[in-house]
């Protein structure tokens, strides 16, 4: 299995480089919303002294950490898989004795992530120099704990994305479904605003749904802002959502394959 993963990585890494100009555009586009929210919240906090207890520095470290976490746990299955279902090119991958999504699509995601960092890191460095934020709340322990949180968060997000992508076995309108899901991430994941600033009801909803598990939770974890109870609870929630998304994906994938008509291919 290791050899398969390694070779898949080589192929996908090589393929990602073919589209580096395209990728640069996507990365820059992806930077827009966090950077805009960062600037907005910074000015609001600066004008009022603080917002619900959060200072200018709190917002800055939050959004700068979010930029990294968002890329670590982000996923692009819909862009690399849905069209294959729709135009039948998935057939070629279905003939192979390995799971197309759990090998190729996964490696595609990881290769994309790695290359995105090549563009993201210099931009992040510039932002750091510009705002000079105080990251002193990050400790070795918080960094170590963030590793499994990011890993689990990515897997949940990946399986969610793969499930949405599987809708393309039934409909061609799968991209709007994915946009809809992204709306939830924006609002309930903690991109638009740190979740503690949401109304109480919205917070209750946000903290049971999976979106904060791959955005807000790892960000707060690395910044050392969570109590041991909160950390434990969120890891448990990650375990639960991983199980749910894994079962959901397995079901929708096999149901989708029964519908697959391999058009054109």
């Amino acid at each position: 299995m290791f050899k398969i993963i390694a070779r898949m990585w080589q192929v996908n890494w090589a393929l990602q480089w073919q589209y580096r100009a395209n990728l640069l555009m996507y990365v820059l586009y992806g930077l827009v919303s966090p950077v805009v929210f960062l600037s907005v919240w910074r000015s609001v906090a600066a004008a009022q002294g603080q917002v619900a207890g959060l200072t200018v520095n709190d917002f800055t470290v939050y959004y700068l950490a979010l930029l990294i976490i968002e890329n670590l746990t982000g996923e692009i299955s819909i862009w690399v898989l849905a069209y294959k279902v729709q135009d039948g090119t998935l057939s070629g991958e279905l003939l192979l004795p390995v799971h197309p999504v759990l090998t190729n699509t996964l490696m595609n995601n990881l290769a994309n992530k790695a290359l995105t960092f090549v563009v993201l890191l210099p931009v992040w460095g510039l932002l750091y120099l510009l705002f000079r934020p105080d990251f002193s709340s990050i400790t070795a322990a918080s960094l170590l704990l963030t590793i499994p949180a990011v890993l689990l968060g990515f897997l949940i997000n990946f399986l969610l994305g793969a499930m949405i992508t599987c809708a393309s076995f039934w409909t061609t309108q799968v991209y709007s479904l994915s946009e809809f899901l992204f709306g939830f991430q924006l609002l309930l994941g903690g991109i638009f605003v740190p979740l503690t600033l949401l109304p109480a009801v919205a917070q209750k909803i946000a903290f049971v749904l999976p979106f904060h598990l791959f955005l807000y939770f790892p960000v707060q974890l690395v910044l050392g802002r969570l109590t041991p109870e909160q950390i434990l609870w969120n890891f448990a929630l990650q375990g639960l959502w991983l199980l749910l998304t894994a079962l959901g994906f397995r079901w929708i994938w096999s149901a989708g394959l029964k519908r697959y008509s391999a058009v054109g291919a």
Binding site: K3, I4, A6, R7, M8, Q10, V11, A14, L15, Q18, L96, P97, V98, T103
Partner: peptide, 16 residues
């Protein structure tokens, strides 16, 4: 794979 030499795909199939 369209953008890389066939031999790279062959190596992938060797593993798969």
């Amino acid at each position: 794979a369209w953008d890389i030499p066939a031999v790279d795909s062959f190596l992938l199939y060797q593993a798969v």
